[in-house]
Design a binder for these strands. Structure first.
Length: 337
DNA sequence: CTCTGGTGCGCTCTTACCTCA
DNA sequence: ACTGAGGTAAGAGCGCACCAG
């Protein structure tokens, strides 16, 4: 299995300041698909095709179970001012399937990936830790009171106090399920209700689980992008520091040159400063001649530091030099330094 | 046309659990 | 056997967009 990680656009350069973009703009669309962070998981695409076929086959009726469930969930949550435990208090639990949804997701509910009694529709019945403690516990639970597995146990937590201990039971997705979800995420990093339901059915998970997985996956993606952006900014900072150091050195050399050759600069006293952001030369001089000279300099420098080139690479190390002389030629270099 | 409440959905932060060294 | 760190599923709260009345 091969995991390919690519950030930024299709070129080799990372996309700078990706974190500045609004989140919604990063969404996968046909136009920006190439611009997004994507992870490629090297599993065969049979499953993907299967899912697409399934999605295509589902016309409209299938996805409504989940939306109905969500509607009920939302209405109960919004009904109570405190969103905290309203799902439990109001008698609707995200882990419990509503009667309508239970029909559509019966398999998912009964055959949780962590339940020994599960039987996957596809080949997702290979548990990561088959026979580990978790599965043994699930087996014990399944063999005990009910045959509903984790989902059922989780769903009944609202009515039973001692179920609190099981309320946050960790449901680890199997490798196959994760890989399949990863593949789907590569296709589209957000899901519409139909896709969510189809994926949930495909993987024998609850739609809520699929939703949460995509949410967490997007969060991980963003975190990764932020790390990359930080690295990029760090490099930019280093480049600018180096540039600053170089300019300081150059300035010292020019001062030394001026001191060693008093006839070198015959122009009136002129202070030329360059705006670091727009790289335009600002002149503070009392001489009109000097002003015109600096205007000429402006013209020459602006041709080399136009905004277009800056936009292309604002931190280009090969930044054009500025020579504060009437002629746009570099000054004489000292004979020996 | 504007306002308002409901709804759906995504994001972020946090928690709890699991795995592994 | 114990423990701490890292990974991750899931809960909770909030904001935004959309829509119907």
């Amino acid at each position: 299995m091969e995991l390919g990680l690519s950030l930024g656009d299709n070129s080799t350069t990372p996309r700078p300041f990706g974190f500045l973009a609004k989140n919604r703009e990063i969404k996968s669309t046909p136009t920006n698909r190439g611009l997004e962070f994507c992870m490629a998981l090297g599993i065969n695409s049979n499953g993907k095709r299967l899912l697409q076929d399934q999605e295509r086959d589902k016309s409209s009726g299938d996805g409504d179970d989940e939306s109905e469930a969500v509607k009920r969930s939302r209405s109960t949550r919004n009904g109570s001012s405190e969103g905290g435990s309203s799902e439990k208090v109001r008698g609707f639990d995200v882990n419990r399937l509503p009667p309508a949804a239970a029909d559509a997701e019966d398999g998912a509910a009964v055959s949780s990936p962590n339940s020994v009694a599960s039987s996957f529709q596809m080949d997702f019945c290979v548990f990561r830790g088959a026979g580990n403690k978790r599965d043994l516990e699930a087996a014990a639970a399944a063999a005990g009171v009910n045959d509903g597995g984790d989902a059922e146990r989780a769903s009944s937590r609202a009515s039973d106090d001692d179920e609190n201990a099981l309320s946050r039971k960790k449901l680890r997705l199997s490798k196959e399920q994760s890989a399949y979800l990863e593949e789907s995420f590569k296709e589209h990093n957000t899901l519409n209700p139909k896709q969510k339901l189809a994926l949930a059915k495909q993987l024998n998970l609850r739609p809520r689980q699929v939703e949460v997985w995509f949410q967490n996956r997007r969060a991980r993606t963003k975190l990764k992008q932020t790390e990359v952006d930080c690295e990029y900014l760090k490099r930019c900072c280093e480049t600018l520091t180096e540039e600053n150091r170089r300019l300081h050195k150059e300035l010292q050399e020019l001062r030394a040159l001026k001191n060693s050759n008093p006839f070198y600069m015959q122009l009136p006293a002129t202070t030329l400063t360059m705006c670091p952001s727009c790289e335009r030369v600002a002149t503070t001089t009392t001489s009109a001649a000097a002003a015109s000279a600096s205007t000429a300099i402006n013209n020459t420098t602006n041709t080399t530091t136009d905004s277009k080139s800056k936009a292309a690479n604002p931190f280009a190390p090969s930044r054009p030099r500025f020579y504060p002389f009437s002629q746009s030629q570099p000054p004489h270099q000292p004979a020996a330094s």
